Amino acid sequence: MIEARGVVKRFGTVEILRGIDLSVSRGEVACLIGPSGGGKSTFLRCLNGLERFQEGRVTIGPDVLDARQSPREHAKAARRACLRTGMVFQSFNLFAHRTVLENVIEAPVHVLGMKRDEAVERARGLLDRVGMLHRLDARPRELSGGQQQRVAIARALAMGPEVMLFDEPTSALDPKTTAEVLAVMADLARDGQTMLVVTHAMGFARKAATMIHVFGDGLVVESGPPDQIFGAPAHDATRSLLAESRVA
Rank of each mutant, 00 (worst) to 15 (best):
M1P: 06
A4S: 13
A4C: 12
L17V: 09
D21V: 08
S23L: 03
V24N: 07
G34K: 04
S36N: 09
G37T: 11
G38W: 02
G39P: 15
S41W: 03
L44H: 12
R52D: 03
Q54K: 05
V58Y: 01
V58E: 00
I60M: 13
D63K: 06
P71M: 01
A78Q: 13
R84M: 10
F89E: 03
F89V: 04
V104W: 07
E106G: 04
A119V: 13
V120T: 14
A123C: 10
R124W: 03
L126C: 05
L136F: 12
L143K: 03
G145R: 04
G146Q: 00
Q148T: 00
Q149S: 08
R150E: 04
V151H: 13
A152C: 10
R155W: 09
A156L: 04
A156M: 08
P169F: 10
P169T: 11
S171D: 02
A172N: 11
L173C: 13
K176V: 15
T178S: 14
V184P: 10
L188R: 04
A189F: 06
T194M: 05
T194I: 07
M195S: 11
L196A: 03
L196N: 00
M202C: 05
A205D: 00
R206V: 00
H213P: 05
E222H: 06
E222Q: 07
P225L: 01
D236S: 05
D236K: 08
T238N: 05
L241S: 14
L242S: 08
A243S: 15
E244L: 13
S245Y: 11
